[in-house]
Amino acid sequence: MNASSTESVRPNYWKVFLTFARNSLVRDMTFRVNFFLQCISSVGWTLMNVGFYLIIFQYADTIGEGSGWDRDRFFLFIATTWFINSLVQAFFMPNAQEFSELIRTGGLDFALLKPIDTQFLISFRRIDWSALSNFLAGMVIAGVSLHGLATQETDPMIPSLGSVVLYLVFVACGVTIMYSLMICLSATSIWLGRNQTLYNFWFYITNFSRYPMEIYNHGLGKPLYGFFTFVIPVLLVVNVPARLIAKPVSPRTGAEWMLVGWALVATVLSVCVSRWVFGRALSSYRSASS
């Protein structure tokens, strides 16, 4: 057997991914009214949140005394949350839910037999295109708040090219951390047999990532701050990219750069851990009786 024939047996992951994406789009477009209603309700949810924060800023100038998260910067933070959550919900959430179902029904057998990496197969099979409407909503929020920051009277701010590049890199890191967490959570359903509360648990954990991390940094919040920065690094997911672009504190401090560096390390670590947990979980999979 020569090298070229082994090459042809190996699947082209990018092509497989594109096929998954196309299939999902076809499926979503089959029930078009449902698709649009889903988009409308996600946008409704966004509007409600924006309304809530606008009400808060009627009363307060910043979130947290001296933290620098004023209205426009905080909305940039919210936009970042929306970007990351919409990507996770579009690409990983439907698959994680389906994974639990595959284990319960024994359908995972078929995934294991396919000549492709199992984690890849079960992570990307289904894409929920309607969740990307929140990505667009995030872009609108980001656009408005960037405009607000650029045109404000006292020290207008336009992010430099460098910070935009860093922002994109760390948004990707954030998505990766979230993905790893989700894989770990859904792998537990191999051991538990069924994991219906997956979504709830996910919601409760990621709830901690939704606000600037400074709010936890006093009194009883310190253990939480440490735990969600160093053990389960969800606090880094939105905070690091949002800080890089919105610069609530300027000039930057050494501690902030350490946080950025730690976010990179945490991303690599969480991918490794999730890969390891997933492998361990697969090896204890016993299939369902048929």
Binding site: Y59, T62, I63, G66, S67, Y211, P212, G221
Partner: peptide
């Protein structure tokens, strides 16, 4: 828990 910290931060800044 998140709500407690969020509102503390809001009240604190006012």
């Amino acid at each position: 828990i998140t709500q407690i910290f969020l509102w503390y931060a809001i009240f604190d800044s006012i």
